[in-house]
Write a protein that binds this DNA or RNA. Structure first.
Lengths: 295, 295
DNA sequence: TCGGTTGATAACCTCCGGGAATGGAAGGGG
DNA sequence: CCCCTTCCATTCCCGGAGGTTATCAACCGA
């Protein structure tokens, strides 16, 4: 009656994403008949048809659609449990923190110092990556903490503490027609080519693809795009570029995120350290923003 | 290398909670040697010792502690996936909403009316229960929506929309020494017996256990306890009782919650209906609170 | 020291997951 | 129009994982 095995979920997800039994089977490293049988058993156990399949077409039913999403989450949870258990028991424990380059707004050194001040805490391993799956690394147990940005990153399934809010600025070459403005509104940027960040589907981006800030800096300097982002992301700024605050762009919030239901005292200690540092800095950061906006 | 089956997780959780192989085995309906072998296989696959066991004692290792928590969540996710898939495909779809008696502050009829106005949406089944696992029902797929109360309920793993904030009041018999006060502070209630809600571990509750509001009403009328709770929870109020606002009690927020990652259009429609009704009512509710606090 | 409790081990059985070969329905091209 | 290709389903078979019973070994308390 009850009881769906993770193996069955893996199999189903393979078929549901490929929509093709033979290809899914070879991706799984098994033969196609075994896969067909497994899916049929799964369907009978659930009492639900998951795939509509005739000889030349495989399509998800409504229930299959649901299992595709829910099953992904379930598998994430299982692999997260496995990874965290391995990490907890195997070698010397460490705390893994992921961030993207420049994504700490200069707070990280102080946070690390405050954390290291607490006795008996495992060392922190900082993973710096441009890959867009930083949040997923928390969900599937590869990391314990992440520095993320709201609203860019999807924080579902995560707990987070706000560390800093930063006004967005437009970055452009010194000679750009808007470069001398004190401030801008999004409407002023109509027609400007905006970069498309790979791995994100943005609505109004028309310009070239970019993968990291160094590349973006380069493209801005060449006058190929105008970027709207938190100022600290491009710091230190190339001399030939200028920043102009964009008043009505939704500000970017730096958050420290960790998996929900984390009971790790080390994570708790790090969060405490981070909020303490953030609170200490908050006044000055706000002043900075106010000064820029006033200007 | 990879691959932990849900069956193994179920087995481990049984042992980890019982801390006793024989009892866990019979709870699982299998023989003890099978369970021992399964755990050993699991440990070897993870490369981690989960349980320290000599002939007369079983204890969780640190890694075992982690797997106990993480594994629970993983299994919740799996069973949620199964339940939601079954519900999506089997019979005529319905939307299941859980709440506790009186936990809607009178908003639900209007919300249901607004929801029913949208065409093509599945009917709503309202489950009213005093059981303290309302939030869990969302997590494991037994329900799609829940009316919960912050900060009493644990909203981790859930998305939520705020519907109403309500000031807390102290409820007491008409002849109580504090009954004639216009307002109170928590300090005024020092020494009063506060009820202990079953299923919650409250810190400063010293009075008798209560399971529902009817019982609580009775105990208050008898002068056995003084309750601090949102006023609407006891409405309509017995004539022999009075409410006095408690100014510094953290107010209770009524929220509509649903599972994260829900992609159901029906859930989305219901949330839209609820926020619309809440917004329409918000002004008057705030006025009510203000009037009470002013008094 | 002895009996009772409890987890580990051993020997055996059963059935389920997987492989190889084959069937059969639906297109598509010549 | 026919045939060939494609792709899922069916059949038959095997090995091993998961389960059982019987037994042992260690540790407890009286």
């Amino acid at each position: 009656m009850e009881g769906v095995e993770t193996r069955e979920l893996v199999y189903f997800l393979a078929v549901a994403t490929e929509l093709h039994f033979t290809r899914a089977a070879e991706r799984l490293g098994i033969a196609q008949p075994a896969l067909s049988k497994a899916i049929r058993v799964l369907e009978r156990r659930l009492g639900v048809r998951l795939l509509d399949r005739d000889s030349h077409r495989v399509a998800l039913t409504e229930a299959g659609e649901v299992l595709l999403h829910e099953g992904r989450h379930a598998l994430d949870a299982v692999t997260a449990a496995v990874r965290r258990t391995r990490r907890a028991g195997q070698d010397e424990p460490r705390l893994v923190l992921v961030m993207k380059p420049g994504g700490d707004r200069g707070l990280l050194p102080d946070i690390l110092a405050a954390y290291d001040a607490e006795p008996g805490m495992p060392p922190v391993e900082v993973v710096v990556t441009n890959a867009p799956d930083r949040a997923d690394r928390l969900r599937d147990g590869r990391a314990d903490l992440a520095l993320l940005h709201r609203p860019r990153d999807d924080l579902r399934g995560l707990d987070a503490e706000e560390l800093a809010v930063e006004q967005q600025v437009a970055v452009m070459p010194r000679h750009h027609r808007l470069a001398s403005r004190r401030s801008l509104r999004m409407a002023d940027l109509r027609g400007e080519p905006l970069p498309r960040w790979v791995g994100t589907e943005s609505e109004d981006a028309t310009g070239p693809e970019v993968t990291d800030t160094a590349q973006l800096s380069q493209l801005v300097a060449l006058g190929r795009v105008v970027a709207v982002l938190p100022e600290s992301l491009l710091a230190p700024l190339r001399p030939e570029l200028v920043c102009v605050p964009v008043l009505d762009a939704t500000p970017s919030t730096l958050v420290l995120a960790w998996p929900e239901q984390s009971r790790s005292p080390a994570v708790a200690a790090f969060v405490r350290a981070a909020t303490a540092v953030s609170a200490r800095r908050l006044g000055t950061v706000d002043d900075d923003v106010a000064r820029v906006v006033d200007a």
